[in-house]
Computed example of a mutant assay.
Amino acid sequence: MYHILEEIKLDLNFNILFADNENILNDTIKNFNNYLIITDREYLNINHQFVLNETPVNISKLVEKINIEFLKVQFNNQSEFKVNNYIIDLNSREMSAKNIKLKLTEKEINTIIFLSKSNKPVSVDELQEKVWSYQSGIETHTVETHVYRLRKKILKTFDDNKFIISKKNGYQIN
């Protein structure tokens, strides 16, 4: 299979590597964060495997299946967002740390992600505009209320009262 894929690799949108045993395979995938293993048997404790146990196979169908598997891997890789010691699963809308999970709303996730991407405190006006899509200058306490409730949820679940901190010119992830 490797030799066939190697021959047509110019028509593929992924790289081809060969590993003939599990140790080499483990060493090889350590260098990649986006990979798919095509194998004739399933390896334990290795992610992103496509087991090819039906042969012969139409090469165009094979390439289509491989691309679908890559899309699945990419979707799963993009579904997690790491902020400090927490992992936010965008698909399930959960924040987790040390096997403790907290359900979040879409706005809470968007707020955390927006704050985490900023190196400086983010003003209430900027959060209103960028996260809530409000026009600037509208008098509302939506941001303050949401941040207050979010901080309270994080404190109750993770006992962390310093995750989102207030500065004189806005909010910031600590």
Rank of each mutant, 00 (worst) to 15 (best):
N67H: 05
N76S: 11
E69T: 02
I29W: 04
N91A: 00
Q49F: 03
I4M: 14
K162Y: 00
S60L: 13
K130R: 14
Y86S: 04
K130A: 06
E108W: 02
K130I: 01
N15F: 10
Y2E: 09
S92H: 11
Q135P: 02
E22W: 02
G137Q: 10
R151S: 09
V63Q: 05
I173K: 08
E106I: 14
E22M: 05
S133Y: 10
P56V: 07
N119W: 00
H146C: 04
N77K: 15
A19C: 14
D159V: 07
V63Y: 08
H3Q: 12
I37W: 04
V73G: 04
I113M: 12
N21Y: 06
N26A: 09
F50G: 03
I112F: 03
K168A: 07
F163A: 09
N33P: 00
K117E: 13
M1P: 03
N26V: 05
Q78A: 14
M1E: 09
L155M: 08
Y148A: 13
K153Y: 08
S166E: 10
I112D: 00
K98Y: 07
R93A: 00
Y148N: 13
K9L: 05
M1V: 14
N91H: 06
V147G: 02
N26I: 10
K103R: 14
T157K: 15
E108H: 03
N45M: 10
L155W: 03
I165Q: 08
L90F: 04
L150P: 01
K65E: 10
N174H: 07
K107Q: 05
D89M: 03
K65S: 13
I38D: 03
K65F: 05
Y2T: 04
K107S: 06
V57S: 08
F75N: 10
P56R: 10
N31G: 10
Y171A: 01
L102M: 13
H3D: 13
K168N: 09
D89T: 07
N15W: 03
K162N: 09
T55F: 15
N21D: 14
L25R: 06
N26F: 07
N84Y: 06
N34S: 11
S79W: 00
T39W: 00
I87R: 05
S136M: 04
F32H: 13
Y86P: 03
A97E: 09
S60D: 10
E54G: 01
L150E: 03
L10K: 14
Q49N: 06
V57P: 00
V51I: 15
L71S: 12
N85L: 11
T55K: 15
I46V: 15
V122A: 04
A19T: 09
D89A: 06
E64M: 12
N99A: 08
E126Y: 05
Y86I: 00
K153E: 06
I38N: 02
M95L: 15
K65C: 04
L150C: 07
L25V: 09
V131G: 06
N53C: 01
N53S: 15
K167P: 02
F114I: 01
F114M: 04
I38C: 12
L104V: 02
T105L: 12
D159I: 06
